[in-house]
């Protein structure tokens, strides 16, 4: 089996990403000080997703890995969305008797 060697990721890249992650954390905490209703939770989740993407693609080297890894991740996320989404077809529409 041939071995694909990855180029080392420069230290600066990692540090830049770390700075970005800290700033994003600051943004989430900042936004949470104001009450925007349901918007808050979506902002928090979007920022968290963005942070995860940074960790996945840079820290975890997903950027350098082959397509298979990315497809695997996508499959897992699709299954996750299905699990959550279909559970909600029950809990959001449950009939409560008077």
């Amino acid at each position: 089996m041939s071995e694909e060697k990855h180029e080392p990721v420069p230290y600066q890249t990692f540090i830049l990403i770390w700075v970005a992650l800290i700033i994003l954390t600051g943004i989430t905490v900042g936004v949470a000080q104001f009450d925007f209703g349901a918007v808050n939770i979506w902002v928090a989740l979007s920022v968290a997703s963005l942070k995860s993407a940074l960790v996945l693609f840079v820290f975890m080297h997903l950027r350098q890995e082959s397509l298979l890894f990315k497809i695997g991740l996508l499959a897992m996320l699709i299954i996750l969305v299905i699990f959550i989404g279909l559970t909600f077809t029950d809990v959001l529409y449950r009939e409560v008797l008077p």
């Binding site: 299905i82 279909l86 077809t89 029950d90 809990v91 959001l92 529409y93 449950r94 009939e95």
Partner: peptide, 16 residues
């Protein structure tokens, strides 16, 4: 995609 077909009588929502 189909797990809740074990649960038609469980009291879950009709939409589900």
């Amino acid at each position: 995609l189909v797990w809740a077909h074990h649960m038609y009588a469980s009291g879950m929502s009709d939409f589900a």
